[in-house]
Amino acid sequence: MILAGAIPAVLLAVLLDQAIAVLQKSGYRLFQKLKYIVPAILIIIGAIYFLTSVSENKLKAGFTLEFMGRQDGDLGLRSVYGLNVNPVVVSDAVMYKAVYEKDLDLISGYSTDGRIKAFDLYVPNDDKKIFPPYFAAPIIKTKTLEKFPELEKILNLLSGKFNDSIMTDLNYKSDYLHQTPEKIAKDFLIKNNLYKISRKGNSGTVRIGSKIFGEQYILTEMYKILIEGNTHYKVETKTGLGGTEICFAALMNDAIDFYTEYTGTGLLVLLKPTEQTIKKVSQSADETYRYVNSEFQKQYGIQWLKPLGFNNSYALMMRRKQSKGLNVKSISDLKNYLNQK
């Protein structure tokens, strides 16, 4: 079983803290004895916790550590839905396979992850809207658009060409079929009659940045092909820069010219408005987009170009066959199922 040793992060922290305290008091000789005993104790505790969690809950849940601490995550599930599934902390690297192999029944994830298709998972509807819209769009400084006057029109060629299903399929080709971002991007553009051979121009260099996951690499390659095929600009890609803060700092400091961001990230991570504002603007994808675009222009001189059309938000996932068997179509359905005696 993948998760036989999974225990809550809080319990691990307490155990580690106590162990360090004992070692500091007792010295090296006791450490030599404990180094064989402590791992065995942790395994036993983990097994006991796992077994009792299974017996007390109808479903076995595992969430990432980040998801556990977010309002658009486990905190929101508890406060808005009243849903407490006693999840264990699980790495993103193993949780999809864990739910597929029935070590888990419910996991957190991203709504356009290619592994949803790979493992035939189902995403229950967030009917009370705790996950704000995370629609993707290029963000770019106004002065950069003035410097490259053809750029806005070209970048907007991808607007409306995606939905969640299309992006999930492209991510599946990357994550599961191991196709390169270049191939995925070229095939997509050919299919949508957008592909043109590079003009090999030298009228200026556009620098595209990206975060450090497959979806961003694919979109970066699409923009590179579009720019070089429709203009005389040259493109330099800076993929895998890091997370949101690093990419945004690179944009602000003119180390890159644009990158693809998500409206929910712009709202919660970069703007950080009041809870009242978040609640007001996050009920609608259009309202979220209008708000972040307006505030980014006021505060940073940055524009959000037209959204691509897909929403890569946080989500809950379970096996499709299991969701059908339990008649779980929404998170409220999930809550009602767990409340049944």
Rank of each mutant, 00 (worst) to 15 (best):
D187W: 07
D169T: 15
R207S: 13
Y217F: 13
G214E: 15
S203T: 12
S210N: 08
G209E: 02
K191I: 00
L157T: 06
F188Q: 06
I190S: 00
I218G: 01
L158Y: 05
G214V: 10
L170R: 11
N163I: 02
L177A: 15
S165L: 10
K211I: 05
D175S: 14
I166Q: 07
I208Q: 00
G160V: 03
I212V: 11
E228Q: 05
S159F: 04
L158T: 00
I184N: 05
G160Q: 01
L177F: 09
D175M: 15
S210F: 06
M167G: 10
R199A: 10
I218K: 06
D169L: 15
V206A: 05
S174T: 07
E221S: 04
Q216N: 09
L189M: 03
I225Q: 13
H178F: 12
I208R: 03
T168H: 04
K196D: 03
D175W: 11
F188E: 07
F213H: 13
T220D: 02
T205L: 07
M222G: 01
N193Q: 11
T168E: 15
S159L: 09
A185T: 03
L189K: 02
H178A: 15
T180E: 00
Q179T: 04
F188W: 09
Y223H: 12
E228L: 02
Y195W: 11
Y217E: 15
Y217K: 08
F162K: 10
R199K: 15
S174G: 12
E221H: 14
L170V: 09
D164W: 05
Y172W: 07
N202M: 12
G160I: 07
G201W: 01
N193H: 13
A185H: 15
K200I: 02
D164H: 14
K173E: 08
N202V: 08
G201M: 01
I225F: 11
K191P: 05
E182R: 05
K161Q: 14
N163M: 08
N193M: 10
K186L: 12
D169R: 15
K161F: 02
I227N: 04
I190P: 08
L226D: 01
P181H: 07
K200M: 03
S210D: 01
I166V: 12
I190K: 13
K200W: 04
N192E: 07
N193G: 14
E228M: 04
I218M: 04
S174E: 13
R207E: 03
